[in-house]
Design a binder for these strands. Structure first.
Ligand code: SF4
Ligand code: SF4
Lengths: 140, 140
DNA sequence: GTTATTACAGACTCGTTATATCTATAATTA
DNA sequence: TAATTATAGATATAACGAGTCTGTAATAAC
């Protein structure tokens, strides 16, 4: 289990935009050059960020990308969810097995303790990442 | 980013062994039946657990698997590391980019704040999972 | 309006990993 | 010796990640 490279690039791109703090949008060309990634590939990543409302995209000449809100209000979790999607880290696969029936029977709620532990771990993980902003990684 | 099915099965298998609490080893046939997975596939997973010292494997007639230590001393993290491996959740991909030079320059240690945030999240995540034992998911 | 610039969508390629099966082998008990 | 059981290795398949290419739409400058 690992974060995808896309998530890595997205974090770097946002950190760069936050660092620049420019009033003009920044083009994919400049962004790709700074991150050392191809323009077309990075553009897909930026589109994901746009779809989740983290950046604004300005088409046309002098266009590019800019943060949709202050860097202090964009969290690591926002970025990760935009790129990795919103499935849970742990998904029940065999909800028809004898084992499942056994473990679920033991609990009042319809959720066994295995799932509860894994989901709690995820919640705590995300909680931490939601408190880390892009602003916090650039120099003050 | 998601845990693999192998990790899922491994957790279930260990929970079952802990539940049985038998003095005799449990065969792959019984285990696969309870988990509703093929024997050969599950056997590969059990071998991973054995290689990490979480279970003992007894070959030959009347053989099978048994917990290598008390269930209270086998953590979720142990299982996850055995199945998912030990790479970090976040790996720097572009350590030659201009962005990297910029961010590393700002910090005294040779590690930028992006990496530090991600590694801290991982550490905390693992910390939590290392405190959850297999024993804790079965009925007392 | 025309042209240059830029983001965007979609198809596509390629390599790797996850999932799963099959078979032959080695170890152990009966 | 025979039956049972785990293990290693080869193999198959599907899914996913990473990355490229191309044509299209939107905007600004001229
Ligand atoms: S609810 Fe628990 S036992 Fe059932 S499939 Fe999910 S993790 Fe497994
Ligand atoms: S050290 Fe920081 S800037 Fe450099 S590659 Fe790793 S995460 Fe990116």
């Amino acid at each position: 289990m690992q974060f995808s490279k896309s998530t890595d690039y997205a974090l770097h791109a946002l950190a760069y935009l936050a660092h620049l703090n420019s009033s003009e949008p920044t083009g994919i060309k400049q962004l790709a050059d700074v991150l050392n990634v191809s323009e077309t590939y990075l553009s897909k990543i930026m589109t994901n960020l746009r779809k989740d409302g983290l950046v604004n995209a300005v088409p046309g000449a002098k266009g590019g990308y800019e943060l949709a809100r202050e860097a202090s209000r964009i969290s690591f979790l926002d970025v990760i969810l935009a790129l990795e999607g919103r499935q849970h880290l742990f998904e029940c696969s065999n909800t028809t097995s004898k084992q499942h029936n056994m473990l679920v029977q033991e609990t009042p709620a319809s959720e066994c303790r295995i799932k509860r532990v894994m989901d709690s771990a995820e919640t705590q993980f995300y909680e931490y990442l939601s408190n880390q902003s892009i602003q916090s990684v650039i120099s003050q």
